[in-house]
């Protein structure tokens, strides 16, 4: 077992080291992309905790991302909060929103759960538009450069933005790795695999799933709040259905129920869209074809397929 632990840590710390070094190697354009991808990957990691590990397929995670984004953005723009306090508030908003939604939505399962979470997220999106005088609706809130200073670092500068995104990503990755390798992580997977059996081993499915969803919401809230701070914009489109589907695509592509899958999926999908939109305006068609290929040849995603073909230790 210790051999496995060594491999696991070597792989994940290696990925983090490579990302740290990438800032010094990559051209500015790609480094900027990577900063964005790392924040989105945190969001997808949160989604994966609910979907990949616990088996909760939510179609409403944009609500939690949006809660983090607007929780942070409105406190900065309307109440004049500092970046640090607003970031913490945004993270808390993501978790609190997941708790509230979970208390209601987790009374359902499967397709009903998908629909209920979708409805909640749509309600959240429409709420943002309804309160346009405060949220600035479709137009969104631009966060002043002056307000984007965290612990003395100016987050609007490329290099600092990259390292801030990296720090968030690294923390999220390591926490997730520890979580899924912990006894609680095993119980989350048990819920995914066989809820009735888990109940008859003494686990309360509702509480386990609620806890997993709240952790997932905290990740989404952290990603949302960080996204607004790092890129200076808080808009309603980030709370739309598209942003509920995005992490699902990342996770499916990279591998549901794998720690690195969401990041891998985010990188590939981001560049797939980036390259495709340089060639054709129908770039969503390319995404669709990619997903078809995925479903046909690697339904468990890239890392899921690798895990089946020899890398059994992959967490």
């Amino acid at each position: 077992m210790t051999g496995t632990a060594t491999k696991v840590w070597a792989l994940h710390l290696g990925v983090l080291a490579a990302l740290l070094a990438a800032q010094f190697v990559l051209p500015a354009y790609h480094a900027g992309n990577l900063a964005r991808i790392m924040v989105l990957a945190v969001y997808a990691m949160g989604f994966n905790i609910a979907f990949g590990y616990t088996g909760l397929l939510s179609l409403g995670h944009a609500l939690f991302f949006g809660a983090g984004l607007y929780g942070m953005g409105m406190l900065v723009a309307l109440a004049g909060w500092g970046a640090g306090a607003a970031l913490v508030a945004g993270i808390a908003a993501g978790g609190a929103m997941a708790l509230a939604v979970g208390l209601l939505a987790l009374r359902t399962a499967g397709v009903s759960f998908m629909i209920v979470t979708l409805m909640f997220a749509q309600a959240g999106y429409l709420t943002i538009l309804y309160y346009t005088p405060y949220t600035r609706g479709e137009e969104g809130i631009v966060i002043d450069r002056a307000a984007r200073v965290l612990l003395g670092f100016d987050l609007s500068q490329d290099i600092i933005r990259y390292f801030a995104a990296f720090a968030l990503f690294a923390a999220a990755l390591l926490v997730k790795l520890a979580l899924v390798r912990s006894p609680f992580g095993r119980v989350m997977v048990a819920m995914r695999e066989n809820e009735e059996r888990s109940r008859m081993l003494g686990y309360d499915p509702f509480r386990i799933k609620l806890a997993a969803l709240v952790v997932s919401g905290i990740y989404a809230g952290a990603a949302g709040a960080a996204y607004g701070l790092l890129f200076g914009y808080v808009g309603a489109s980030f709370a739309s259905i598209q942003y509920s589907i995005l992490p699902l695509l990342y996770v499916l592509l990279g591998g549901a129920g794998t720690v690195l899958g969401p990041f891998l999926g985010a990188v590939l999908m981001f560049y797939l869209i980036d390259l495709a939109s340089g060639i054709t305006t129908a770039h969503l068609l390319v995404v669709g074809v990619a997903l078809l290929v995925l479903v046909l040849f690697a339904p468990k995603g890239i890392l899921g397929a690798l895990r089946d073909r020899g890398l059994k230790w992959l967490p």
Binding site: A190, E193, N194, E196, R197, R199, M200, G202, D204
Partner: peptide, 23 residues
């Protein structure tokens, strides 16, 4: 509820084998 009864000391093994096949 069932999960609390398990904690209280009642264990049930399923008629149709219900192990976690993929673990």
């Amino acid at each position: 509820p069932a999960h609390q009864r398990v904690r209280a000391g009642i264990a049930y093994t399923f008629q149709i084998t219900a192990i976690y096949a993929r673990l």
